[in-house]
């Protein structure tokens, strides 16, 4: 025991090595997702099942239909990201997410993407005026991004 105490660096290297060895031995041997989608996708919201039918996406172990960009998938995309962010990354860079989830960005998503009315972005049409109505009608969705301790945007005016 004394010998290990005298050589803490060696102990650390051994522990890290053991951890890496154990970690690697329990890793799946399946190939990772492709870094990018091999085929160019058509216009509009992609439906994976147009090409992939009912087969299972390796790695995710889910049918491709799980990732069809249906209206309900788009509204509930947070849970898909939580489980399978790597699948999203095949087509989307993080900058795509940052269009709406930019944190400190000073420009509303609807203005940034004013040339993309086909995209479902929040805060269209004079939202500064409408937010006091929306916040009373259905406050549940505000707090995903605003009003928590993650930002002071609200408290800048509501002191």
């Amino acid at each position: 025991m004394k010998a290990w105490k005298a050589r803490p660096f060696l102990l650390l290297v051994l522990l890290v090595g053991l951890g890496v060895f154990t970690g690697c031995s329990i890793l799946s041997q399946e190939a990772s997702f492709a870094a990018t989608h091999p085929e160019k996708l058509g216009p509009g919201r992609p439906m994976c099942t147009t090409c992939h039918d009912v087969e299972v996406l390796p790695g995710a172990r889910k049918p491709y239909s799980t990732f069809d960009h249906t209206p309900s998938f788009l509204k509930n995309h947070a849970s898909a990201v939580g489980r399978d962010a790597g699948t999203c990354a095949v087509c989307h860079g993080q900058s795509f997410c940052s269009d709406c989830h930019g944190g400190k960005t000073m420009i509303p998503p609807a203005v940034l993407l004013g040339n993309r009315p086909d995209r479902d972005v929040p805060h269209r049409a004079g939202y500064l005026s409408y937010h006091q109505i929306d916040g009373k009608v259905d406050p549940g969705r505000c707090y995903t991004c605003h009003g928590r301790s993650n930002n002071e945007r609200c408290t800048a005016c509501h002191k």
């Binding site: 707090y143 009003g147 928590r148 301790s149 002071e152 609200c154 408290t155 509501h158 002191k159």
Partner: peptide, 10 residues
Amino acid sequence: YGGTNLPFLF
């Protein structure tokens, strides 16, 4: 959410 940082009235 761990609460809000909005003041009481808001």
